[in-house]
């Protein structure tokens, strides 16, 4: 798992829209600091695999019915 510092550096490279989308998901779903680290690591992996950043933004904007 990525270290928090590495995650912050990686997060800084994300597009502004993706950052905002992740922030919205974080607040809605009450992410803790370690959740942020994990999510950033997984998003980084997804981007490296060639996932569309816009698709990730959309995914983070989804509000699931509970």
């Amino acid at each position: 798992m990525m270290t928090p510092d590495a995650a912050r550096l990686m997060f800084a490279t994300f597009s502004s829209d993706l950052k905002v989308a992740m922030k919205g998901a974080a607040i809605r779903n009450e992410w803790r600091a370690d959740t942020w680290t994990l999510q950033v690591g997984l998003v980084s992996d997804a981007l490296l695999r060639g996932e569309d950043p816009e698709a990730l933004e959309d995914a983070y904007s989804i509000i699931l019915e509970s």
């Binding site: 997060f11 992740m22 922030k23 974080a26 607040i27 009450e30 992410w31 803790r32 600091a33 942020w36």
Partner: peptide
Amino acid sequence: APMLEDDAQAIADDWCPE
């Protein structure tokens, strides 16, 4: 344990001040 929404907001602001 449930976390206060303010905590999540503060952590999110720390990560993403935008």
